[in-house]
């Protein structure tokens, strides 16, 4: 499988000789994959995100973006254009006073010709579902809408990979759901690789693969089922597991025969139905 991002044994300290925020971490992200990165506060997950588009350079080790070394200054703009970043606070990443001008910001920087820019800005606004707000002032939009404007501003660059650094952390549940729906559709329908740094377990449960970080290292890695079925191991890293996984874990401990790897609500409900009635659950129970 093609590699989108590769981090090889990277180390990073914010101050020379200071505490290592990342301490010998290796991770690989494949093309088209949806990877969730989990970890308690201060485990280095945001620091890792900033390594993926050369905002930070590792003190040791290498980060490769489609084979390009992030330390190679000549490829800096190629790398940043390939890997788009969306941050936590939507207010602090919107530059312009009109939505469509903000979406165009990256393209203006890249020197895209105005006719082509118009097409790509409209396309990006459609994909992120913010086309109807194109002439509004960003401060008049809700948090979720602003965050989708920020996503549009990034995907206008036509990146191959989207890195979300706790992009839903400041949003209300509806805004969060809409942003995640946009991200999933970009991943599934447009083949954009997604790296989502999050502390919402429900979001991580929808990923193709989960990496759990602790102390600047990878602590657990695998599919959401593999990771969340190890309830005790995840708890030991000061993280929660999705509610369904927790319920199954408790039931199993209490002696109920539940399948071991249920992490989403629908699956869990179906298993409980079967357990209680002895019949297969109807399609819409």
């Amino acid at each position: 499988m093609d590699e989108m991002l590769t981090a090889r044994d990277i180390r990073f300290a914010y101050e020379e000789g200071g505490r290592l925020a990342i301490d010998g971490l290796s991770v690989q992200v494949n093309k088209g994959e949806f990877l969730a990165v989990l970890g308690a506060n201060g485990c280095g997950k945001s620091t890792l995100a900033k390594h993926f588009n050369a905002i930070l350079l590792p003190t040791a080790g290498k980060v490769l973006v489609e084979g390009m070394d992030t330390a190679d200054e000549d490829r800096l703009w190629d790398i940043r254009q390939k890997v788009g970043m969306v941050f936590q606070n939507p207010d602090n990443q919107i530059v312009a006073t009109v939505v469509e001008e903000d979406v165009a910001f990256a393209l203006e920087n890249l020197g895209v010709e105005p006719g082509e820019m118009r097409r790509r800005v409209d396309e990006a606004m459609e994909l992120a579902g913010v086309y109807k707000y194109r002439e509004k002032a960003p401060h008049k939009l809700s948090g979720g809408q602003k965050q989708r404007v920020a996503i549009a501003g990034v995907i206008a660059m036509r990146p191959d990979c989207l890195v979300l650094d706790e992009a839903t952390a400041m949003l209300d549940p509806i805004g969060r759901e809409k942003v995640m729906r946009t991200v999933r559709s970009l991943n599934r329908d447009h083949g954009i690789t997604v790296v989502a740094i999050t502390h919402y377990m429900e979001e991580a449960a929808q990923a193709d693969r989960v990496v759990v970080m602790s102390g600047g290292k990878v602590a657990l890695e695998g599919t959401p089922k593999e990771v969340f079925s190890q309830v005790e191991a995840v708890r030991a890293l000061h993280l929660d597991v999705p509610q369904s996984a927790e319920l199954c874990h408790e039931l199993t401990a209490a002696g109920c025969p539940m399948p071991p790897d249920l992490i989403c609500v629908d699956e869990c409900a179906a298993a409980l139905y079967k357990l209680l009635t002895g019949k297969e659950a109807p399609a819409h129970g």
């Binding site: 165009a104 920087n109 020197g111 820019m117």
Partner: peptide, 22 residues
């Protein structure tokens, strides 16, 4: 944070910049 976000979107000053609105 804004400066980081601008760098992520390839901002590098006015050189070679084009504009959406003509």
């Amino acid at each position: 944070e804004l400066a980081t976000a601008m760098e992520c979107r390839c901002y590098h000053g006015g050189e070679g910049r084009t504009r959406l609105r003509q």
